[in-house]
Amino acid sequence: MSEPHILIVDDDTVLLQALPAFLRLRMGTVKIDTCDSALEALSQIAAWDYDAIISDIKMPGMDGLSLMAEVRLLRPNTPTLLITGHGEHDLAVRALQGGAYAFIQKPIDRDSFMVSLIGAIQKRQLSRDTERGS
């Protein structure tokens, strides 16, 4: 797996500090960008072909579900992992229905989160290989 490039979107700036640190510890080599709003994320997504996008759902302005809808148009093959609050099952269902690769409940279970993220990255890199191959 080549060095993955990941985008994290959350309006909680503390999470934008803690989560990348965690991913760097677990994944070693990883390139991580962070945004604290969906609008800012959209310009980043337009500029970069990320291996995975991790976004919170509840954010002021454009929320994670709307961001994901935009991603589906801009980068249909980029997997999106949406973060929901604990017990917000309806949001989780809506996330999956909207095409999310996975939903992650806060507080984040780090191991299962890693499994989902690595799966997402592998999926994206596979699809990229397929694109290159075709």
């Binding site: 909680d12 503390v14 999470l15 803690a18 989560l19 640190a21 965690f22 510890l25 677990r26 509840k58 609050g85 604990h86 017990g87 806060k106 507080p107 984040i108 780090r110």
Partner: peptide
């Protein structure tokens, strides 16, 4: 709940990071 969930999640991540650092010996 959302407001509480954020610090709880962050606590989990920060503590997890500390554990990881010790586990990984880095």
């Amino acid at each position: 709940a959302h407001e509480l969930n954020n610090p709880l999640n962050n606590i989990g991540l920060f503590l997890g990071n500390a554990i990881d650092r010790i586990d990984l010996g880095v």
